[in-house]
């Protein structure tokens, strides 16, 4: 016999928009964002908290959305890659930097990197390369060898500092 599974009504703010849904307790936050809300920009790479592809921001701080249940996000604020660009015409400076520095290839890990880097550069606007490496070490990329991602973060930091 399977044990029973509880259901819960939750209210979550995602990229500034409030969503109310009833969810099964075990529904992962990553699956909630992707399948319940259709926000498929957050990718799922390992579901055991190592690859970082599913990184979103919970109240402004990057977390693994595969290691949280949707029910835990009740009353909290989530930001995903879809909430990064200011509008349809413009990209966020970090997105621009990844574009210019060829910081992505297949693009699968990219949203996780962007959400990690956005929080990192808020805390550390002028990082050293070593600090950049440490900051993104919780995100795996299998295409770029990180060389151009590091370049992109450096460039993004410059852009953000210039825009301040």
């Amino acid at each position: 016999m399977l044990p029973e599974s509880s259901r819960h009504r939750i209210r979550v703010t995602v990229n500034g928009q409030v969503y109310e849904r009833e969810v099964e307790a075990r529904l992962l936050l990553s699956d909630f964002l992707r399948y319940e809300l259709g926000l498929t920009g957050t990718h799922v790479g390992c579901e055991h908290g190592v690859c970082g592809a599913c990184t979103v921001q919970l109240d402004g701080q990057p977390v693994r959305s595969c290691l949280m249940f949707a029910v835990q996000a009740d009353g909290r604020e989530i930001r995903t890659v879809e909430g990064l660009a200011p509008d349809e015409e413009r990209l966020h400076p970090i997105q621009e930097a990844f574009w210019e520095a060829h910081g992505l290839q297949c693009g699968f890990c990219t949203p996780g990197f962007l959400m990690t880097v956005e929080a990192f550069l808020r805390e550390n606007p002028d990082p050293t390369d070593e600090e950049i490496r440490e900051a993104i070490s919780g995100n795996l990329c299998r295409c770029t060898g990180y060389v151009n991602i590091i370049k992109a973060v450096r460039l993004a930091a410059e852009k953000l500092r210039a825009g301040r």
Binding site: T40, G41, Q95, L104, T110
Partner: peptide, 8 residues
């Protein structure tokens, strides 16, 4: 290909 990928 990047703008789409960067926007998720």
């Amino acid at each position: 290909e990047d703008p789409r990928l960067l926007r998720g």
